[in-house]
Design a protein around this nucleic acid. Structure first.
Lengths: 208, 208
DNA sequence: TCAATCAGAATGAACGTTCATTCATTATCA
DNA sequence: TGATAATGAATGAACGTTCATTCTGATTGA
């Protein structure tokens, strides 16, 4: 009965936690980590302040849980990519989906908040660092299996490529919604760069 | 005796304001807009809280002044680029300089803070929007003179290119300082993309 | 030359509010 | 009944902002 730990598990308590996290995510996106009070978070979750503390010991704990939940979601996203016959092709498609997905959600605002906080709060910086290395490792596993090189070699040769792709997806999500045609043109440019980067990996993998 | 308005003018009061802004910039970078109290800002500027309010009417006013000061700095940066014989070549070099400059400063932390705040505070969002369109316009002026097309045509055809370059420079500055070789490889990739983007503009300008 | 005058630079205590957190209490339900 | 879930008032600290007051150095008038 072992189960992979996910944000939304099957016990009622875990479902409640997931609900609270979703509400907190929106509240933080609207008001920021410091701007959203515990009253705000409790109200968003539809409960009293005191009860809120039964689920999260502090404000910082919610932020950490939020980051952990994002990391888990990423893991779930990469699962089919890594299992695919052509992991790089799968990544191309996944990136396309995520790019338009993030555009219409408040995830960009939250990531911007997390990015800013990670540069000044050591705890959050550590959590983000762990998240980024984990995601980068997913990508480099995909690159390794796609090109036939070892994971270590993939890490050494394509670490920057992975970081670049992450940077582009993140930055794209953090863009404010603006003029539609400009936004479309920019998306096209970003996708072209990501495709080129993946092309380079696919081409460079065998002969390196 | 007309003079261009700059952050640091020659009157003593303006110099004082510039000092305060520099101190506030550091304090905000360390603690965030909400995290840094007026006490913190006043202490950083070496004065009492009450006196601080003689220079800035509110916390929000300092943030606005900080953004305006960044915009002015950008204007000063672009002045030689736009006056150059080869504006695109000048931009290549300026980007290289800025990329390493931002890497060793706390400007990335502040930009991350501003980016996050711009997505939830309308005032800051407006100011940032104005800043981005102004900078984009500088770039598209450079593209217009470099390719011989009109400014309007430059805006229509290269708006996304300008946005992409801004995005890359900003994202690079907002990266945490990490493993040196990874950082170097990533910088190389980013520069290659920017160069390619500028190549495309230079090549595409004449025939379009 | 020296006191009187004065503008504005600077101070830090005080104000009302909001914050994160705690806790005594009540409801729920098995 | 007993354990768990939930409440919201209470607490003390910290917040942004205001303001009565002090300090400082230049200007004045004799």
């Amino acid at each position: 009965m072992l189960q992979t730990p996910t944000a939304t598990n099957d016990t009622p308590a875990d479902a409640r936690v997931a609900e609270i996290l979703a509400a907190a995510r929106q509240a933080f996106a609207e008001k920021g980590f410091d701007g959203a009070s515990m009253q705000d978070l409790a109200r968003a979750a539809g409960m009293s302040v005191g009860n809120f503390y039964r689920y999260f010991a502090s404000k910082a704990a919610i932020v950490q849980a939020l980051i952990a939940s994002d990391l888990e979601e990423m893991g779930r996203d990469f699962e089919p990519v890594l299992a695919s016959d052509d992991p790089i092709a799968a990544m191309r498609q996944k990136v396309r989906i995520k790019l338009v997905e993030h555009q219409c959600s408040d995830k960009g605002a939250l990531w911007a908040e997390i990015t800013a906080a990670s540069l000044r709060k050591p705890d959050i910086g550590t959590a983000c660092g762990h998240m980024e290395t984990t995601i980068a490792d997913y990508m480099m596993q995909a690159f390794a299996t796609a090109t036939g090189i070892s994971l270590n070699e993939s890490r050494q040769r394509f670490g920057a490529h992975a970081a670049l792709i992450m940077m582009l997806v993140k930055s794209s999500a953090m863009m404010p919604q603006q003029d539609a045609t400009l936004r479309h043109d920019l998306n096209t440019l970003i996708l072209r760069i990501i495709d080129q980067t993946l092309d380079e990996i696919a081409a460079n993998g065998a002969k390196g």
